[in-house]
């Protein structure tokens, strides 16, 4: 088939809601877009373990510690599902990790904010996982099969993440005055960065039009952001906490909450590497990569040696 026909055939499949699978023909740009998006998503899951991992040893009870451990382990799993999905497109996992370490590939900027106290673990589960879920539920219907399947798996696991976070916020907001203050302070700090997680306004995001046509995305950044705000405000009310936005109010005409404009300078500043923890996060990932190198090599050497031995044993038996 000619390139043009291939492309038309490809688009027809997308329009008919037929998933694209690894060995199917796809435009180069589709492949590149997916590798970029899926790997950034994978990096976010992996780097996302750092702010929460910071509190595992200091969780206030054994119950909370077990939960947090399980949650952080899930995030590692999510990263791995996603790297696998990217690999089905021909990407090499080692290369992808390298691109993250040298700054060529991004991860979600939210993880460049610090976790200052235990309430932040609650706020992250509730807001950051909540925002991620909003996006990920949409992505369960993305046009690339392996990515969609990874998302289904991830979404099944995510709802525990959000619920455990909200439970922490609930416990704190119903605790002492000081604890309630901590919860409120944490909400104040995580609210805006959580809204920024959905990315720039629709008009300003460079890849969005093509991503819609290819059904990689099905909702715009602003749509998803609004959906998240609408779902979250009543939850904040239930906690007796308020979001740090004086302009926030219900708009009966639109049937949505109105909220203040986002501080995009802060967003771009963090994306460009100047957030509070960008350097620390990359340094931690680099250290993990370096410190683990000998383990990876040793495991491979051991596997090779074992295989040689087995071949040797088989030859002796045959002789």
């Amino acid at each position: 088939m000619k390139e043009q026909n291939l492309e038309a055939h490809f688009q027809a499949k997308i329009d008919a809601e037929i998933k694209i699978e690894p060995k199917d023909w796809m435009p180069d740009e589709y492949r590149k877009t997916l590798i970029r998006q899926i790997s950034q998503h994978a990096h976010s899951e992996i780097v996302g373990m750092l702010p929460e991992g910071n509190w595992i040893t200091r969780a206030p009870s054994l119950r909370r510690k077990l939960i947090l451990l399980a949650k952080v382990q899930d995030e590692a799993g999510h990263g791995l599902y996603l790297y696998s999905a990217a690999e089905t497109l021909g990407a090499d996992r080692g290369d992808l990790v390298l691109q993250m370490l040298n700054g060529k590939a991004k991860y979600s900027s939210i993880f460049n904010y610090p976790t200052l106290n235990w309430a932040d673990i609650g706020a992250i589960g509730w807001l950051v996982d909540g925002a991620a879920i909003t996006n990920q539920v949409m992505l369960t219907r993305t046009s690339y099969g392996p990515y969609a399947r990874a998302m289904v798996r991830i979404c099944k696991e995510e709802s525990f993440h959000q619920r455990q976070g909200y439970e922490i916020m609930l416990a704190m907001s119903r605790g002492s005055e000081e604890q309630k203050q901590m919860a409120q302070d944490s909400l104040n700090r995580w609210w805006w960065p959580s809204l920024m997680m959905f990315g720039p306004h629709d008009g300003e995001s460079s890849h969005s039009e093509q991503a819609f046509k290819w059904k990689i995305k099905r909702k715009s950044n602003d749509e998803l952001r609004q959906q998240f705000v609408d779902a979250t405000i009543p939850q904040a009310g239930l906690l007796g906490l308020t979001v740090p936005d004086p302009a926030l109010r219900w708009n009966a005409e639109r049937g949505h909450y109105d909220f203040s404009p986002i501080n995009w300078d802060e967003f771009w500043n963090v994306v460009k590497g100047n957030g509070p923890c960008n350097r620390e996060r990359i340094a931690a990932r680099q250290k993990a990569c370096d410190d683990g190198a000998w383990v990876r090599e040793a495991a491979l050497a051991y596997a090779e040696k074992k295989e040689q031995k087995q071949i040797g044993a088989r030859q002796t038996a045959a002789a």
Binding site: Q73, R153, E157, A299
Partner: peptide, 23 residues
């Protein structure tokens, strides 16, 4: 279920256990 990286078959089973059967 998906794929994983491992040095050998034994490790592949262990990694698959950790990644695909946590629940």
């Amino acid at each position: 279920a998906g794929s994983i990286h491992a040095a050998d078959a034994e490790m592949a089973i262990e990694n698959a256990r950790d990644i695909y059967t946590r629940r």
